[in-house]
Amino acid sequence: MKLLLIAESREGKLLGGSYELMAFAQELGAETAMFLVGSEADLPKYDGTLYLADVADAGEYNPEAHRALILDVIDKEKPDSVVFCHSSYGWDLAPRLAYTLKAAQISEVVGVADGNMVVPVCNSKLRREVKAGTAQTVITLQNGAFGLAEDPAGTPTVEKISGGTGTVIEFSGFELAEAGGVDLAKAQVIVSAGRGIGKPENVALIEGLAKALGGEYGASRPVVDSDWVEHNRQVGTTGQTVTPKLYVACGISGAIQHLAGMKKSEFIVAVNTDKDAPIGEVADVLVVADLKQFVPVLTEKIQAL
């Protein structure tokens, strides 16, 4: 089996997901070639052929151009599967490529079983095994599902490629996250609020517990999207990645995007009414309770210590 791995970079910097693609290939024992729109200044440690298009020509976000470049490489390498990260880059480009290739696309793969791809369903509550009906496939991998390649080493054989134009979508730059505010990465204890807090007034409960534990409070995406908590306190893929000594997830079901941002915390406590919530997968302790009743009691008892 041969895989074409689509690595990613941003502003010339290689992104870590590229090593997850290699880990997937290692698990399958597949032959690989790699494709990257990036910079010669930051190449992956990789023992193989790397087709490199200069981001200065191909653009940071230019799906038309990137597709055309990948199609040229596919012509040469004839891979069985083209593998992307399930990222803002991958989930945008993969369906476009699959469409042109007339290939099945299987999204957010978390495992392989009996030659079929395993993907999550319903916020990771269920799993689904998917069989592709086309010889060639396009696959995106869930962030973190396959880990990083073991001891990536080597210097790639770089084959420079160019060409591929795209004029329909015009990219005009990045907007960085608002600076300032809280640096959750430095906090030893983080207590986070999820959708289960129910209303903005209840943020105070979470903040109170965080204070009692000498930490900071954070939030999951829905709470930030509702403007109940400012964005610089968001934990998860599109917010901050944190590794405190203690992480308390209150009313957070545990969407993969949130888990990716906190699962490496040293000790995780989840407070949730749903015993089957995916947060239970990463929690050291799952307290099955309504946070609105439990958190004030816990806070009071900790303050009384």
Binding site: N116, E129, V282
Partner: peptide, 19 residues
């Protein structure tokens, strides 16, 4: 172009304590 062969619950691997 693709078919679902099977659906199931993921194995609980957390093994965390449930209170």
């Amino acid at each position: 172009r693709q078919e679902t062969m099977k659906m199931y619950f993921p194995e609980k691997k957390g093994g965390g304590l449930v209170l």
